[in-house]
Design a protein around this nucleic acid. Structure first.
Length: 206
DNA sequence: CCGTCGATCTCCT
DNA sequence: GGAGATCGACGGG
C-alpha cells in the first residue's frame, strides 16, 4: 500500500537496493488497468565502472540519458528490437546506477496480464524473465523517464527478504563485459519458481 | 528435453 | 555491418 519513496531509490549502494527490491510489489496502472507482481529477481548495474552497464565509462546517448537522473525513475529500453526491459534508476543525479527487474510473481490483474500476452493458462512464462514481465504489466519504452512516485508505475513496500533467502549469482547475457561478467550482481528469492531460467556465467577460480 | 533461428531497435565500428 | 541486459517457434532425439 505504501509507495517506496525517493530516500529508498537514492541509496548509494546499488547492490543493497537490488536485494531490498526482492519481495516488493511492482505495480502499473495503464489505461485504467491495475496489474502487479512481487519482484523475485533483480540485477544491479553499477554505472560508469561496470562494463556490463549501458552507462559504462559515463557513456551518454539519447537512450541512456535517463540513467543519470536522480534515483526513482524508470529506465525502459528496447532489447533485440523487440523486448522492453524495465530498470529502476538509483543513486544521485549523475551517478548512473540502475537495477534490472528480471522476475515477477503475478499478484493483481492476472487475467489482464494473460490477455496482454495472448496466453490462456497461468504459468511462469507469463512473468519470469525481463521481457516477459514487461509485456505482462504493459511496460513499454513509453514509460522510460516516468517517475516511480507517479500514477502509472510504482513500487509498493513489503517486508525485506531475509539474507538467507537471497541467492546471488552472475548476471545473464553480459559475457561481452569480460571480467565484470563474473561479478555476483544478480539476486533472486531462493526456491521461487518465478525466477528466470537465464544462466549467468559459471564461477571461475580466479 | 535440447539446440537453432528469427525478430528488427539502438549503438558502435 | 554486427552485436546485444530476450523470447518463442520449430525441428530432432
Amino acid at each position: 500500500m505504501v509507495k517506496l519513496l525517493p530516500a529508498f531509490y537514492e541509496q548509494k549502494d546499488v547492490l543493497k537496493v537490488a536485494k531490498q527490491l526482492l519481495g516488493k510489489l511492482l505495480v502499473t496502472e495503464i489505461d485504467g488497468i491495475r496489474t502487479s507482481g512481487r519482484i523475485t529477481e533483480t540485477e544491479a548495474y553499477e554505472g560508469s565502472t561496470d562494463k556490463a552497464s549501458h552507462a559504462w565509462n559515463n557513456r551518454r546517448t539519447a537512450r541512456t540519458e535517463i540513467i543519470y537522473a536522480s534515483g526513482g525513475v524508470a529506465y525502459v529500453y528496447l532489447c533485440y528490437g523487440i523486448h522492453h526491459l524495465f530498470n529502476v534508476v538509483t543513486n544521485a543525479k549523475d551517478v548512473p546506477h540502475a537495477v534490472l527487474v528480471r522476475g515477477l510473481e503475478p499478484v493483481e490483474g492476472i487475467d489482464h496480464m494473460l490477455a496482454r500476452c495472448g496466453k490462456k493458462r497461468l504459468d511462469t512464462t507469463l512473468s519470469a524473465g525481463p521481457g516477459s514481465l514487461s509485456k505482462a504489466l504493459g511496460i513499454t519504452t513509453q514509460l522510460t523517464g516516468e517517475s516511480l512516485l507517479g500514477n502509472k508505475i510504482w513500487i509498493e513496500d513489503a517486508p525485506l527478504v531475509k539474507p538467507s533467502d537471497i541467492v546471488a549469482g552472475t548476471r545473464v547475457g553480459v559475457a561481452y563485459a569480460g571480467d565484470h561478467a563474473y561479478w555476483p550482481y544478480r539476486f533472486s528469492i531462493r526456491g521461487n519458481k518465478w525466477v528466470s531460467k537465464g544462466k549467468g556465467l559459471a564461477a571461475t577460480g580466479y
